[in-house]
């Protein structure tokens, strides 16, 4: 089974970054890390490939920088990586991103594409669905469990009430939630070996993707300050007020 896992390099979330005042784009450091939520997809892909035989190819779009984040995913055990880096793709919207990824995945070939639900820096949350549409395969989203075998993939799809069991024939795109599996730690040997693994570097024109389609960020506003909470003094009846408040907020 040929498994493709979409991964993204993002700035280390523990750091502090600035926005370009002109474009409102994040000023990205050269050294970026693997998006933590992608570790679940990589782990899932590795488990499926190990159980049924096959390979795991990483596909990523974005400034390659030092490739540290890609190497992290390779160190976990992925076989190879395809990285699309192109100055023309700077600030791509979700659709352009999905088009680039779809073209790279078509070129690689796939039975199963695994993605996270959304990236930790962009948070658009629509790329997996767009990707499935562009690849013309089913999209199975928000998976908390995944099983792929005999030309089929079955997932538990997280819902607000619990989960739905969703099944589709392969090839397909599956987006996984954090916690779907426990990501392994790369072994030191894995880290050393990752340096020797094949990383193919492509541009948008290599893939024939039109980069002119573009949404523009017109303004960025700081998030509003949090308002002070409600203080309820306990006079023996406080629990009733708490219940009332929760009902007002429609929590209960």
């Amino acid at each position: 089974m040929q498994v493709v896992v979409c991964v993204k390099q993002i700035p280390d979330p523990s750091g502090t970054y600035t926005l370009d005042p002109e474009t409102h784009f994040l000023v990205r450091p050269d050294e970026q890390v693997l998006d933590d939520t992608d570790r679940y997809g990589v782990e899932m892909g590795l488990q499926i490939a190990q159980a049924h035989g096959g390979s795991v190819t990483l596909v990523s779009m974005g400034p390659k920088g030092s490739m540290q984040g890609i190497r992290q995913a390779l160190a976990m055990g992925a076989d190879r990586a395809v990285v699309v880096d192109d100055a023309d793709l700077k600030g791509s919207d979700a659709l352009t991103t999905a088009q680039v990824l779809a073209a790279a995945i078509q070129r690689t070939g796939f039975d199963l594409v695994i993605t996270g639900t959304e990236s930790t820096d962009g948070y658009s949350g629509v790329v997996p669905q767009m990707l499935a549409e562009l690849l013309d395969v089913p999209a199975l989203t928000y998976a908390t469990e995944v099983e792929a075998r005999d030309g089929k993939v079955t997932i538990n799809r997280q819902t607000s009430a619990g989960y739905d069991v969703v099944e589709a024939s392969l090839p397909a795109v599956v987006s996984v939630t954090a916690g779907v599996v426990e990501p392994r730690y790369p072994t030191f040997k894995g880290i050393m070996d990752a340096k020797k693994k094949e990383v193919e570097e492509l541009t948008a024109s290599d893939l024939g993707v039109d980069t002119s389609l573009r949404q523009r960020v017109t303004a960025v506003e700081p998030a509003p300050e949090r308002e002070a909470g409600v203080k309820i003094e306990d006079d023996g009846e406080a629990h009733l007020k708490v219940v009332e408040l929760l009902q007002q907020k429609k929590v209960i």
């Binding site: 160190a75 730690y185 790369p186 030191f188 880290i191 050393m192 340096k195």
Partner: peptide, 12 residues
């Protein structure tokens, strides 16, 4: 690079 990878992995 190798030593920095060991450092980062151990720290995490």
């Amino acid at each position: 690079d190798d030593l920095r990878a060991i450092q980062a992995q151990t720290a995490e």
